[in-house]
Write a protein that binds this DNA or RNA. Structure first.
Lengths: 148, 148
DNA sequence: GCTCTCCGCTTGCAGTTGCTAGCACTCGGG
DNA sequence: CCCGAGTGCTAGCAACTGCAAGCGGAGAGC
């Protein structure tokens, strides 16, 4: 698969996306050292279907992914992320607090998180020093800040 | 619905679960003040299907939920939680750090998070003083710790 | 009155999902 | 050798998902 030309890459990428969650499930299963039938029993999913999923022939629903995660004893979120139905969550005190706020509508939460993320991206692009470096070179960081 | 007996409650609860995501979508749509057809266009979902979803007649896939969330301009996670395919994430510095660690397997992450959560629950059950109070009564807190 | 646009819903159907029944293969024990 | 247990897979099918075509109703303009 490493030798794909640019021409077939779009089709292959779609196929890879489909296979990716299957390959990932197989990888986790191998890591857990259990057979396909054992996992299918633990997960409550038929073993032929699990086989088809692993080989990328079928696209499981979120509920099936949830069951598979339970069988693998990993978080369903990890599988969702791999399947492309969940983004890697932005973590940290601010997003956590925003998400937990009961006085904001869902839309307001999303607006705040979008703004927060855009600020974060903006700050990354300006390439400020990391907090650890500012502890060591506190004075020099302060100088460069005032120059900007 | 408030007068349901215990006998019909199990069936009604299942129906409510199915209707819950639909009712929630309708609620968000009403909040956003857009019609069903407008949302269906924004979301790229057929309007009859969206209607059926809102009335609980169909159970949409995660991909459709994702599209609806996009149309509503809210996070897909909010809809997933409501649909029961995602748990409310435990937030905070520790879970965030565990999830972001690239040197742990998914299973190890889940184990750590399970242990972390069980400790958190244990600490809630023992009703310890808050950190602010422990600063004031630091010595007494230390004594009760050594007794346990 | 009519026409048009928008509204939400019904119906039928193609494609997909998840299952059951069964297959071929491997390995170990008698 | 045979048998049993375990492995992963094929094929057929019922139920489900999501859509397009179309309906009846409401409101506005002529």
């Amino acid at each position: 698969m490493g030798d794909t030309d640019g021409e077939a890459s779009a089709i292959d990428k779609v196929a890879d996306l489909g296979r990716d969650i299957g390959g990932y499930i197989k990888q986790q299963r191998d890591t857990a050292k259990i057979s396909l039938r054992q996992l299918s029993k633990l997960a409550g999913v038929s073993n032929p279907y699990l086989s088809q999923i692993e080989r990328g022939l079928r696209k499981p629903s979120a509920e099936i992914l949830q069951q598979i995660a339970k069988g693998l004893r990993i978080s369903a979120e990890a599988l969702y992320v791999r399947a492309g139905i969940l983004d890697l969550p932005v973590g940290g005190p601010v997003p956590d607090a925003v998400r937990a706020d009961t006085e904001l509508t869902e839309r307001q939460k999303q607006v705040l998180l979008d703004v927060y993320e855009s600020f974060r991206r903006e700050n990354e692009n300006t390439r400020w020093s990391t907090p650890e470096e500012s502890d060591v070179d506190g004075k020099r960081t302060a100088d460069s800040t005032s120059e900007e």
